[in-house]
Write a protein that binds this DNA or RNA. Structure first.
Length: 386
DNA sequence: TCTGGGGTCCTAGGACCC
DNA sequence: TCTGGGGTCCTAGGACCC
């Protein structure tokens, strides 16, 4: 049976939500992102893109390019609520919906001809409902596989609807810039251009030995994508592999004391998210980015999985003790991996660990009820230098 | 006023075991 | 008394995605 995949991608999602909710922002260049020092652009409205502003650009540069822009820190909680509403709409069209991020998803609509004559009609109906119910525009791509559907949704942005039928694949890909190849970022794109491959069509016809020399095993995957072949299924649920938090400081941290305080806060944040999501982890990784942007990770694997802030913090602290501090610290991160579902059974933990867990859960309840600031470590109340 | 924060996947070396 | 070999786990780094 012919597979049909739809990729739905919201247009300038964060900025569009802000413009929807504040009419004074409509028609103006809106830039959502980190507004402090060292922030980057998360989403630029189409008005702002005309000034050359784009995602991942340092905010300082965005301000230079577009001084008349409206700069907004954004409201992640709100975007998550809108995203949930979008997913609810998508779920009405297929049981096979795979969210890629807050604002993107794949749907497998294979075999729905009995409901719709053409898969294009499904995509149109999705766009219509998103517009009617949420006052936002989405772009959609309809194609025989994920890779082509994603390229197709991008091709029509904003408010686009592009269908790539089986017979049109080669023509669709022929002149497509090589940078659009899934998995080809800055480095790979530069490497490909270095051997004279500038379009996906050129990659499809490139010399096999040449490709293998440069990309080894990955050459075969690249080639398949370039020919429009992609049999990856749409998978609705993924088990998480890791869960972490990191923070970039406005000013580099210089003392072990400040670093320790930050590791404690990060450990507690991660611990709380683990408990909320029902996972425990066995490997603690500390990430450190120095003032020079040199970045290292150091990890330690425990004998038993944990989701306790204290255990995560003690491990992070021990890891940090082994790191030489020759320059200021720009970023700290704490991540847990080697995750497994924590079903609540105490057999997973030693007895005193279980006691601590009960206290943590009680603290969680207080925070749920009275807000995140209701209960905190004395140490975290020391005002931080901003 | 260079370079966020959430992730995934891959590679490669070393330890360790049989 | 010149160094096999496969499997698994751990660690570190890096490319990539949104």
């Amino acid at each position: 049976m012919q597979r049909w995949i739809i990729h739905v991608d919201m247009d300038a999602f964060f900025a569009a939500v802000e413009q929807r909710d504040d009419p004074s922002l409509r028609g103006r260049p809106v830039i959502v992102g980190g507004v402090g020092r060292r922030g980057v652009v998360s989403t630029a409205s189409y008005e702002a893109r005309r000034f050359g502003v784009h995602s991942a650009m340092p905010m300082s540069e965005a301000r230079r390019l577009c001084p008349q822009g409206v700069f907004i820190p954004g409201n992640h909680g709100k975007y998550e609520r809108v995203a949930a509403a979008i997913r609810a709409i998508l779920a009405a069209f297929s049981p096979l919906v795979e969210p890629l991020s807050l604002d993107e998803a794949f749907l497998d609509v294979t075999g729905m001809e009995w409901l719709y004559d053409d898969p294009k009609d499904i995509a149109a109906a999705i766009k219509q409902r998103i517009s009617d119910e949420l006052s936002l525009t989405a772009s959609a791509g309809v194609a025989p596989n994920k890779f082509l559907a994603k390229l197709a949704s991008d091709w029509g942005k904003p408010d686009g609807l592009v269908v790539v039928r089986p017979g049109e694949v080669a023509a669709f890909l022929r002149a497509m810039p090589i940078s659009r190849l899934w998995g080809a970022g800055e480095k790979t794109t530069a490497q490909l251009k270095g051997i004279g491959i500038n379009t996906i069509g050129q990659l499809a016809g490139a010399d096999d030995a040449l490709l293998h020399r440069h990309f080894g095993q990955a050459a075969d995957d690249m080639r398949r994508l370039a020919r429009g072949e992609d049999d990856r299924p749409v998978v609705p649920e993924h088990e998480p592999k890791s869960l972490g938090n990191e923070i970039t400081f406005a000013e580099d941290l210089r003392t072990r004391d400040e670093i320790g305080t930050c590791l404690l806060a990060l450990s507690q944040k991660v611990s709380r998210r683990l408990r909320q999501s029902g996972y425990a982890g066995r490997t603690v990784t500390v990430k450190i980015r120095f003032g020079s942007f040199r970045t290292i990770t150091r990890s330690r694997t425990l004998g038993e999985p944990t989701l306790l802030g204290d255990t995560i913090y003690e491990t992070a602290r021990a890891i940090m003790a082994g790191v030489e501090l020759t320059e200021g610290v720009r970023l700290l991160g704490v991540t847990l991996s080697n995750l497994q579902v924590y079903g609540g059974q105490t057999s997973l933990f030693a007895v005193d660990e279980d006691k601590k867990l009960k206290i943590s859960v009680a603290v969680d309840r207080l925070k749920d009820k009275f807000g995140e600031g209701a209960v905190t470590r004395g140490r975290l109340l020391i005002p931080k230098k901003e």
